[in-house]
Structures are given as C-alpha cells and as structure tokens.
Design a protein around this nucleic acid. Structure first.
Lengths: 338, 338
DNA sequence: CTGAACGCTACAAAGGTTTGCAGAACTCGA
DNA sequence: TCGAGTTCTGCAAACCTTTGTAGCGTTCAG
C-alpha cells in the first residue's frame, strides 16, 4: 500500500501541507511554478489523495448511490450504465445497491448509502416498498434524491418517469388503426402507478375511438409468460382479435398460445407488448412493443441529481417519451399480404 | 443532515467517546449495560457512524470495487448482481465502474477505486486493454484483486474463469454425436485467451472424433449477427452441415441465413451457440448454447475476493463449469422426425 | 518614500473515529 | 482485610486533509 501523504510532498519541497493541498486542488492562489513542482513531486512519489481524509474534513463526498430492485434486469442495467457514465464524467463514483424487490433490503441499502455520506441518491423503489416512508424520511433529512421509473408521487426531490399513459394510448391506437376491433388488455398490478397509468392510456384510446370497455377482457397481473399464455386463451375464447400487453413476457406467452392454435398473426390477431425487450425483435413473428428508452431515463436522472446537488433546483418532475416500435405482430397493413 | 457524533452520545451519557466507539463496534471489553445504554441513545439521537472518519482512522474500508467493460450486458450484470449480494452480506459496499472496453477508462476506474482505498477489486478487463500492465502494477502495490471471465494469465491474485475449452469441446462433440460430419467454427479474435481456448476445444473434439480440421471453414471474428449471416453463407457454400459458434449473436445471424435459404434445422444443418443469451430459448428454432453460469462466476469471484482480503489465501485460480443446453437447433435425434 | 493592495504561503485548528496504554472499579480467594 | 487478577473506562494521540486567518514580501500609485 502506498502511504504517501501531502506532508511527505511538503517536506520534500520545503513547503507546508496546506500549500500542497491547494496546489493539487486547483486553488488559484498558488504560484504556477509551485503548482508544477508539487505535481511533479506527487507523481514521482506515487501520491494518491486520501479521499476519506478529504471527505471528513470538507464534509463533502464525491460518491452517489443508486438503488434498484435488481441490477441484472436489462432495463435497470441500461439505466445504471447511462447514469454511471454521466456521473463518472462529473467526478462522482457510483455505489450500487439492490433491493431485491423487498422493503427490508431497500431500507438497509438506504442506510448504507447515507452512512457513506453520499452526495445524492437515485432510487427506483421495490414493489415490496408500499409507503416509501423510509425514502421520504431520508429526503426530509436533506438527502438529495431522484426517483426514477417507479416513483412515489408527491415526494420532494426530483423524479424521472416514462409517459406510460401515452405509451399505452399510442399502442392501443395503433391496434385500432390497423382495424382490430375487440382489443383486450394485459396489465400488471394496478396498485402500482405505472401499470395503472398504462391501463388508463388503454382505456382512453378505446373511449376516443368509440369502442366499448369490456372488463371481461382486461386481465390484471398478466406479466409473465405463463399468465400470458393462459389469459390469451381466455381472451380468444371471449372474442378478442387483439391484445395490448403491459409487458413483453406476457405478450410472448400469448404468442405461444396463438401460434399453437394456428391463429395467424397479424392477420387474425394483433398484439403489442411493452418494454421492447431484446428478444422482441429476434422472435418470429417479431413483437411490436413500446420502447421505454432506459438510456434516456438514466441520463436524465443523473443530470437531475447533479442539478439537485448543485442546488440549481429544489426538485423537478421529468418525463421521458416512449416510442412505439411496430413489428410484424401488429402491423396488419404490411404483413397481411404475406 | 444529521450531525450526531459519538461525542454527543458520550456527553449525553456522561462517558467518553472511546467507550461509545467500543460499545458500538462490539468490543467485548465493555459492560453490557453500558452497551445497551449507548445503543439506545444512538437510536434516540439518530446517530449514524461517519464512515470516513472511521476509514481514515482505521485505515480499513468496507468498500470493494468491480470493473467491467459494460454493466448493461446481461452476462456482466448477472455476475455483478450475484457478487453484490454476497459482498453486501459480508458488510461491503460495492462501487461499480465501466471500462467501455477501452484501456483509458479502465485505468481511470482503477485510479478511482484505489483512491477510494477500496479493500479489493474484481475486474474483467476491456478488450482494449492489451498488456494489463496497470492491473499488474496495482496488484504489485498490494491491492487485492480477483480477475474474472477475461483474465491475464500468470498475474498474482485470484481468478475465476469458465472452462471454455471444455465448453467448446462438449458442444462440438454433441454435434458430432448427432451425426454432423463437416462442422465449421465461428470464433472471436484469437488474441483473446477465451476465444483461443474455445477454438482449441473445438479442434480437440474434431481430432478425437477423427474428423479433419479444415481452416477454410473456421471463421475468425464472427461474433455479431451480421458476420454470422455472411459467414454462414460461406460455410454452406463450402459444404458444412453444422456450425459451432463462439457466440449466440453470430449463431443467430447464421440462423437468419439458413431459414432464408430454406435449409432445414436441425435435419439438414445443426448449430450450437455460446453464452446462452436470453433470446436463445425464445426464438424458433430454439438455439442450443453453452451456458456460462454468470451467477456462479459472480459468487465465486466475490468469495475469492473475501478470502484474499482476509489473507486466507494469496491467490487461487478457479474454474466454473459450463453447461451445454441442447435445443432444437442441434438436436437432430429428437427433432428430425418432425 | 510611504502606505495600500495584492499575490502567495505558513500556521493551526478542525473534522469524527479508533486504539494503545494507563488506571479505576470491582471480584474473589486466602 | 488485603492483594492479585479481571473487567471496564478514560486519556490522548493519530489518521490526512482542508480552510480561515494572519503574515510575509512585492508592486505600484500617489
């Protein structure tokens, strides 16, 4: 381990540690020749700033934290990757914690980060975290926070979310525009804001197009492949000719069922998923989906956090647009001729 | 911000900070009643240990770093996720850095981490990092390091890798066992150890089965979908009836070509990929592949790092087994009847 | 030539915790 | 009751950097 300190540099140069500190930190009140000498000596001795001493004295830290349910989901890892690049650029290290979708781990992650005296935190809360009181409490203690994707509305600090309503609205409208008339919906738990907003978008599109809303063909908690398969069967039985799905995996399950039954896609049945998972473009028929732009979310959230830490804002609510990616599974106009 | 210190607790209780420190850190030389009183007061006052002061004084840190090329690749994010869980359990926070596959970023990541005085580092080096001299230099300065997946052989410290040779050997043998006789290979750049080992495994299987090695049907740098497509055309032209691919994306490209030409899979042509990407089980025909067990790698690497930091070892080289996942694309025995 | 202004550096304190050492309080056997 | 041994706590230094203040030497206007 290196143990070179600014004191060593100071002694070697016959000056004091304070001058060395100022020289290295870019303080303008230091002669250029001195600064150069200090830099040279620091390099020669292999000096490495002790961030802990620095943080202790200055009370500031060059670290921020990110809390996500799981790192190994493509959506979150893309967000983290984008955010990390920006934060790194701004001189911040990033500590990453997983809540594993449960509140207990989220609370302990929060504790870890506040103990580390991070300058700010980006958080997308666990589904197991119902009230978010621990997050609110941390905010009230003055910790700079940006919520992203999964957000407790009305909290202080900043937030970055998708326009889930518009995403679902556009997807549904796209199905309507392709001539489907009885469009069912797969949703996630409607207690979660995000899923509720998507459901509202779906309803709004139906209403606007003058189509009836039939609760019989709305399937809550259809977010995995298996439930998608099972509910697709019910949807077909109940006369649907299309499905809007709040997730890609349940849409995939629906495709499994439809292909098995020999129902032609998109001629006889249309389907649009949500999230634009990597596999959607690789399967056959390729699945239409709503791109969530995680990279954009990550960037915006990181920049929002930087603004928050610089006191350039006291809180802002940002929205990232979704983008409808039309593929074979719903593009009747193009693929019907096949 | 809370600013409660152990001094505040000490004053409130009429004892000294040293006792408070000992009480909180679990030092056995402190009366149980005192410890309880300290804990209660700490909770009451909302005390939070200042890790920077602690690290500064003790010279130890409860942080480790992980450097990967990119966080947003499923393989790496799975490794990180698994490692993070174990390290968190052991009381370590994890700082994550991306090298973006270039040496410069890797060096600066290394600097960030050593400046933060992390207790140890897990690293999978960038392709742009040819010699790894910066890594070696850090190791020689006494920093505990575990290399994983992409490893510079012969370095001190520990390493965790896949048995790439065996993975490729098994995959090729599986093709041979299914009656394919002219098996081509897609490889990555052979300057990278991992790809070289896979190529060696492929060759060993051919040799053992008494099949000739024909360099005409070995395609280096076939790792993306496009090159897979192009080289599959050449492979077919040169009489191949099967392909072993060092990656799934190039195998996917090959499937694109084969399907387009109406070549039946697996009856007329067999193919096995590598990495077992999520899409492999979702496409049609489902792609056989070699599972790399990233979760296992992450766990092993984390545990190896903990051992290294506890001086329970001075370095060990661990190997994680791969697992051949047989799917439609190569399972002629089962699917030929279709 | 004097005094003010300026550029630069030294001094010293502070930030919160840990830890070796010394010493106080207590226990217990003789 | 005394003394030896234990158990617990206090004292003070140390970890390394940052930063407010003071002071030095120089420059320059008047």
């Amino acid at each position: 381990m290196t143990n070179v300190t600014i004191i060593d540099i100071a002694e070697a140069l016959g000056i004091t540690p304070s001058t060395v500190s100022r020289a290295l930190s870019g303080n303008p009140y230091v002669k250029e020749s001195t600064r150069e000498a200090v830099r040279a000596k620091a390099r020669e001795l292999g000096y490495e700033r002790n961030v802990h001493a620095s943080n202790l004295r200055s009370g500031k830290t060059h670290t921020v934290g990110i809390i996500v349910p799981r790192i190994d989901r493509q959506f979150f890892s893309s967000i983290i990757s984008a955010a990390e690049s920006i934060l790194d650029e701004a001189g911040f290290s990033v500590i990453i914690c997983q809540s594993h979708e449960n509140e207990e781990d989220e609370i302990s992650a929060l504790k870890t980060l506040t103990e580390s005296r991070v300058g700010g935190i980006m958080v997308s809360h666990a589904t197991g975290s119902r009230s978010g009181s621990h997050i609110l409490e941390a905010m009230n203690r003055g910790i700079k926070m940006v919520q992203f994707d999964r957000v407790f509305p009305g909290f202080p600090g900043s937030s970055v979310t998708n326009d889930d309503f518009a995403g679902a609205y556009n997807a549904t409208m796209h199905l309507i525009g392709n001539g489907y008339t009885r469009i069912g919906a797969f949703t996630g738990p409607l207690g979660t804001n995000m899923f509720l907003n998507r459901y509202e978008g779906y309803k709004a599109a139906l209403t606007e197009a003058g189509l009836p809303l039939d609760e019989d063909i709305v399937f809550e908690n259809s977010i995995v492949r298996e439930t998608g398969y099972a509910n697709a069967a019910k949807a077909v039985e109940r006369g649907c000719d299309a499905l809007y799905s709040s997730g890609d995996y349940s849409a995939l399950g629906a495709l499994d069922f439809l292909k098995e039954k020999g129902i032609r896609i998109p001629q006889d049945f249309g389907i649009v998923g949500t999230a634009n998972e990597a596999f959607t473009s690789l399967i056959s028929p390729a699945l239409s989906s709503t791109e969530q732009n995680p990279v954009e979310i990550g960037k915006k959230a990181a920049l929002a956090l930087l603004r928050l830490m610089n006191n350039e804002t006291s809180g802002e609510n940002l929205v990232v647009d979704t983008e409808l990616i039309i593929r074979e599974s719903s593009d009747r106009k193009h693929f019907a001729k096949k």
